[in-house]
Design a protein around this nucleic acid. Structure first.
Lengths: 337, 337
DNA sequence: AGTGTTCATCGAACCGTTTCGACACTTAAC
DNA sequence: GTTAAGTGTCGAAACGGTTCGATGAACACT
């Protein structure tokens, strides 16, 4: 293995000069830098990650904790992870993958052993048991999602409340007067993941504000459940013409169920959703939707971390990404009966 | 930060003793070990990962390279990744996440900087450009999938050829005489990913062996393409009664298309698939399938790596997991016309 | 000519472990 | 009763970088 002293000898300088030439932390003459770089190339030198971490107390590795649980749309998680890795690389960092399963002990482990410099935690719950730990940790972290109190933490996510509102406002503009929200599986609400509740808040607030009749229905992630909800909706809200869906898994079966019950989309029923663009586009009837910006969240999360690692104190505690709606075929002006 | 010398002082021993008590690489008296462990607990000591890696030339980190490209079923990748992480943890290792995008340079980087001890590479192609690199690297690796020649490498995957055969054999046993394979998108074949071709080989061989009429159709990952293939099949093989599907994305739309064309499944048409159990189970008509054992592949891949890291030379170059079929509702005995 | 700056580089200490050789002390063997 | 073979522990030397203070050279300003 070729080490920094080999490079130094080959270039006729001291090891520290090589180090500075590489890091740029002290001025090095253009000529010397050239020579060092040439030697590095010639010898195929690569700094030893462990040695570097030891000496600099920076591992240049970020931890990413991904959720495993049911009710979470896997492609979204994956896209997010990829975006984190890609962005981290732009800042010369790597990403260590942890599963939720590892729990608090896992976080403490990678942080305390200095295996990672900072952490990204997904799927944060309202009263997440990891919150106190993350606050106490000597390493910066960013959370995807919002807990009950984000004091002293850095959080980022789509503004789900605004997303819920936007869906309703859109339907209201199209003339719909009776709307329903088909939401996440009940367990998501029970475990108090903030985003599901925020959608409900936004949905309800906007419906009230616009004087619409409205109802909210959680829904399991199965086609059968989707069908059941569809029937229930028609029974309980016969005048229903607008539906907001916040549940990737049942978007397609739900629309199918409506059509099988004799309702055309968007002829009789307009549908808007909060889901990945990919999904919204892939359906038989492309769905007007608010995108789940997983890639952007990933990028922004890393950027926030880098800012914190850079010592900046001016990192915002909360970052709410504004919803972006794409109109597709599933929502149309209400037919005048 | 509390370090090993602090622990040593607190326990009244030398640092090396603490190290040996921890690693077990030399005998330490029961009494001393107790004392050391107590001190560690008291002080909350965690060995510094970088220092450890430097001194031992072992980082205890594995690299996992995940594919990004189209035509790859994301949940399978994710499940695999999770299984890798979980298994790695059992061996006291962590997992660094790399994307295909990083390419050969990425592999070289993490290997040469000693950031990782070993590598797992997914989605290997027949003539993968990374093969020479992996052979040359001083660190062990395991590939998921099989290249044209696996000499000097360690590969593991489902035995796709046997899986293709098993699907046909099953249909043959049920009395079907005319069968078709609906495969992966054309680009998967073009880029010469071995597993797709192996399914075709197995399918064809078993069909010939059983004297069945057979045809093979690649298929894009869209509902429209599924429908088109369904129509084409009926046109070209009017006597068709058995279909093997090897394409997660279109399994559901394909079955739907058949039914809309007036064919009952399994009444008129029997379907078997090679896909994740989860998917096979979730359809309206649960599909008889060969499981894609992503979790097992992940576990086994890590175990193989650990064996190699342990210095074992008796690590098999090729590991083919035998197909496991689960019978569900979609395949039945051929109706006698 | 002397003093003060700035720039480029060097030398040495340090980062926190692991590991190797040595040593003292038991125990077993002949 | 010496020799041989373990046991359990210690001290010191790595491991391969980074970083801080010092130094020398070049230059400008009194």
């Amino acid at each position: 293995m070729v080490k920094i002293t080999d490079v130094a000898r080959h270039a006729g300088v001291s090891p520290s000069t090589v180090s500075y030439a590489l890091s740029g932390k002290r001025p090095i003459s253009e000529e010397t830098r050239q020579r060092v770089e040439e030697s590095i190339r010639r010898l195929g030198y690569r700094p030893h990650a462990g040695a570097r971490a030891l000496a600099s107390s920076r591992s240049n590795v970020l931890a990413l904790v991904v959720p495993l649980r049911a009710g979470i749309h896997v492609p979204v998680v994956m896209q997010f992870a990829v975006s984190v890795v890609t962005t981290a690389r732009r800042y010369d960092h790597d990403v260590l993958l942890l599963t939720q399963e590892e729990g608090e002990e896992g976080l403490r482990r990678v942080a305390d052993t200095a295996l990672v410099d900072a952490l990204i935690v997904m799927d944060v719950q309202l009263h997440d048991p990891r919150l106190p730990l993350l606050r106490a940790l000597e390493r910066p972290s960013v959370m995807i999602g919002f807990p009950a109190s984000s004091d002293g933490l850095t959080c980022i996510d789509l503004d789900f409340k605004a997303a819920g509102e936007a869906c309703v406002e859109h339907l209201a503009r199209l003339g719909h007067r009776v709307v329903a929200l088909v939401g996440s599986p009940p367990e998501v609400y029970v475990r108090q993941t903030a985003f599901a509740q925020r959608v409900v808040q936004g949905f309800t607030a906007a419906a009230d504000r616009n004087g619409l009749a409205s109802a909210v229905h959680p829904c399991e992630a199965s086609p059968a459940a989707a069908r059941a909800v569809a029937e229930q909706l028609l029974r309980e809200q016969p005048a229903l013409t607008g539906v907001v869906v916040h549940n990737e898994a049942i978007l397609e079966p739900l629309v199918d169920a409506f059509e099988q019950l004799g309702l055309r989309v968007p002829g009789d029923l307009s549908v808007t959703a909060i889901c990945p663009d990919e999904l919204a586009e892939s359906l038989r009837v492309p769905v007007t939707s608010i995108a789940l910006p997983s890639a952007e969240v990933g990028t922004r999360a890393v950027e926030l971390l880098m800012k914190k690692l850079g010592g900046s104190t001016a990192v915002p505690e909360a970052t709410l990404l504004p919803p972006r709606m794409t109109e597709r075929a599933s929502a149309a002006r209400r037919a005048i009966a």
